[in-house]
Nucleic acid binder design. Structure first.
Lengths: 198, 198
DNA sequence: TGCGGTTGACTGACTCGTCAATCGAGGGAG
DNA sequence: CTCCCTCGATTGACGAGTCAGTCAACCGCA
């Protein structure tokens, strides 16, 4: 055979991402996913136990990669400001590389954490905590002022990134390549230096 | 009769807000709303043409109030920084006054704008534009540096506010009164001054 | 008596997840 | 080399349940 079981599973999961991104998790049918994958309806249930499990899988798969990337960044010996740039970079590049996955994660998971398992909430908080850790380190080293709590700075930082992605997702504005880099630097500049006149 | 038609409509809409907030728009049933309002199932359809129309109504009702408040703030002759504080204040106080409405707006509308009418998208953009206008005025007057585009600053500002609200919504952390005021000042300080050591 | 407000059983449409049937690659026997 | 057997992969029709929206009947005030 030309495709292994793992490849078939991937095929279906990738189709699910496209369908979730296009129609939304709640409004799409499992048959839409099967059609998109070019596969029989029942086969979806051979590889996944439910529609929701597909969403869980694709979220955890990507989010864990992100958590690992943030952790790795945090362990490097760069300056806090550069660590924040690296984190923003990773998230934005994730979107650049695969907009659909990020769209689904932001629209269907991150913001609907109440209707889904509380597991996801903990994962999301892990990300905040890592970012807050970077800020706290910056405050201890004297690079950052400590008027702002690290937890709050993390929320604002992540919220800014997510809002930028949301703009790209919904406004469907054709984004040229430089826009990604500009967004990264603006986020870091705004969070670190603010709007204050320099 | 003791209740007018308008009051009955309000009764049902308020019940819908509570149910949407508790169970989510997609997972709740119209019968849940009727039960919550203490009203027969069919009566809901006497006042609203569909479940979705209830969501539209409650969003527009509140969002228009917010747009008006932002516009009024913008027309005052306060400093840009204080205008931003006023805007953050209004949004956060909206949550303090009625958490359920803001929860529904953020979770079900703001983030699901693709599945619903494009009308909402335009309304949401109006808010960004107003905030961006405040920032642009600050840049012209020299109070703000213009390294950051107003549009981007608006996204970051609104994103920060929304992320703080999201934290309150999902973490269900008991929020004491001072937390609201602290959040307002931290948002304005972070956006205007950044994390830079002062 | 007339009419707007109100009721809730009912219908029609839809979809998740199941399952019995089928397919086909690989391997063992003749 | 061929036959056929096995077993996991694959199919899609179907059962069971859900729920939005309809509607004919009812109520009670003016």
């Amino acid at each position: 055979m030309s495709t292994t079981a793992a490849e078939k599973r991937r095929l279906i999961l990738d189709a699910a991402v496209r369908v979730f991104a296009r129609q939304g998790f709640h409004t799409c049918r499992v048959s839409d996913i099967a059609d998109e994958a070019g596969v029989a309806y029942g086969l979806v249930y051979h590889y996944f136990s439910s529609k929701e499990q597909m969403l869980d899988t694709l979220f955890l798969e990507r989010w864990d990669v992100m958590l690992a990337a943030i952790a790795e960044t945090d362990e490097s010996d760069r300056a806090p400001r550069e660590k924040l740039h690296a984190v923003a970079s990773f998230i934005i590049d994730s979107y650049r590389h695969d907009p659909d996955v990020m769209k689904v994660i932001i629209v269907e998971v991150t913001r609907a954490a109440n209707t889904f398992g509380r597991t996801h909430l903990a994962k999301i908080r892990d990300a905040y905590d890592s970012i807050a850790g970077i800020v706290a380190a910056g405050q201890r080293s004297g690079e950052f002022d400590d008027a702002i709590t690290p937890q709050f700075a993390a929320q604002a930082f992540y919220g800014s990134v997510e809002q930028v992605l949301t703009g790209w997702i919904f406004d469907a504005a054709p984004v040229d390549e430089r826009a990604y880099e500009r967004a990264k630097t603006m986020i870091v500049e705004l969070i670190c230096d603010g709007l204050r006149r320099r």
